[in-house]
Write a protein that binds this DNA or RNA. Structure first.
Lengths: 244, 244
DNA sequence: TTCAAATGTCTATTGATATAGACAACCATA
DNA sequence: TATGGTTGTCTATATCAATAGACATTTGAA
């Protein structure tokens, strides 16, 4: 937590900037020796702000479940994590991070059918208006939400994928049941933005948080597009790893 | 710019949230038909805030050079960009985006020599304490800063790389002069965080902005690490594309 | 038990943020 | 030239964010 200065009068409250910086430091392992955040008075000195401002920042982190203040002792670090997601031909949600957490789960939030927009048709290399199955899913690791995704599948081949997915909790298994033994990721686009309302709710984020967004296309082994998906990850919980 | 609600009392001022959303909409091409942002009164209605708050947001975007308000006519869109960076074995700064801008340039900000830390030694597969050349560079596209990077090179092989880089303005050319005809990217890690003070200065960002961070390792054709670098990109100006 | 160190709570004050309303200035066009 | 639509400016008010200081409460260790 080096001496970078806090920015004033920029539309982002000092307590929020400081909360973000402390969260980053925690994830970086800066306080691993003690397992505690430095005392409020010391933080106030370091950041050059009033102790009350520090308390607002720590209060926000406590709300997130990252720290817990104990009167008389100090502020303990409760949780700290940043999962590493490998991005490769074989990118799947659960497999990549399986060795980093005890339990991964994928929940189906909603399923519907719709006609392909111009953009979706371009991505999936089909005609505009083709029927698509649309799935909204939530990825969890050890019961903490990590990502929310919207996926589209051509309805003619994968009309029943919602039910199969609901039963298996896995895209990979659902594909297998529907006659796609294997699939590969062709291209992944990565951007970042601030969390929107849906992110705040589904990913249990605090406003101002960052989400990493991936837009990915999967094809079967004959190079026929089978899935296009847009996923939003809580940026303070994940890291992407691109292996070439 | 769909009807996502603005978050109140979250430490992020409404005008900043709205500015970020409008900037995103502009980059997304939502206003390409008219080349103008909707009238202030309409935006105020859409976002459910006072017109003055909208004016603060547009003022911030005007400061960034993204829009320009003209009394009596409206608010014109001046600039709009999100460069696409391909990430692959052959990732290089200038080549990937060469067809998207008129001019790319890379500037050497600082050069120094230092001993390898434990982490750097692990990445570059050398012994801790080995001498390294450290370069701080700034990547520009059409005279606008896009990324800032810190790179480390083993000093025994690349002791003079700073001078060569200063002369050629290209890592690729510098490597060639120093006996590395070609190199490949082995692994890239991608994270996102809020801009720090250095980002604000070097990348001309406004506080609260997002930076995408890549940590990458390049090796020569014999799989010997030649360069480890940490780059920070202005998130609203770039998009990463991973081709598999 | 005593004390130092840490968090918890309270009051007061200042500046930034946001709302509300009114009107001026300017532009394009009918 | 008149008008509707737009940005520019001003005043006033309420709430949030940040500072300042004082003191209470709890904990762990001397």
């Amino acid at each position: 937590m080096a001496g970078q200065k806090i920015q004033r009068q920029t539309g982002v409250a000092l307590w929020r900037q400081i909360a973000d910086r402390i969260r980053t430091s925690i994830n970086h392992g800066d306080f691993d020796e003690t397992g505690m955040v430095p005392p409020e008075t010391m933080l106030a000195l370091q950041f050059g702000v009033n102790r009350h401002t520090i308390r607002s920042a720590l209060g926000a982190l406590a709300q997130e479940g990252i720290v817990r203040a104990v009167q008389g002792r100090g502020t303990l670090i409760e949780r700290k994590e940043r999962l590493s997601f490998p991005i490769s031909k074989r990118t799947r949600f659960s497999q990549g991070i399986g060795d980093q957490v005890r339990e991964t789960r994928s929940v189906l939030l909603a399923a519907s059918e719709e006609a392909a927009s111009v953009e979706l048709a371009r991505q999936l290399k089909i005609n505009t208006g083709t029927r698509l199955v649309r799935l909204e899913t939530l990825g969890q690791a050890d019961h903490r939400p990590v990502s929310r995704a919207t996926s589209w599948f051509p309805a003619d081949r994968f009309g029943g994928i919602a039910d199969v997915y609901r039963a298996t909790g896995s895209i990979t298994k659902a594909f297998k049941e529907l006659g796609v033994p294997d699939y590969v990721r062709v291209v992944t686009e990565i951007t970042a933005t601030h969390a929107d309302e849906g992110d705040l709710a589904d990913l249990q984020l605090s406003p101002g948080a960052i989400v990493l967004i991936t837009q990915a296309l999967n094809t079967d082994l004959d190079n026929v597009p089978v899935q296009y998906s847009i996923s939003r990850f809580a940026a303070d919980r994940v890291r992407f790893t691109v292996e070439n």
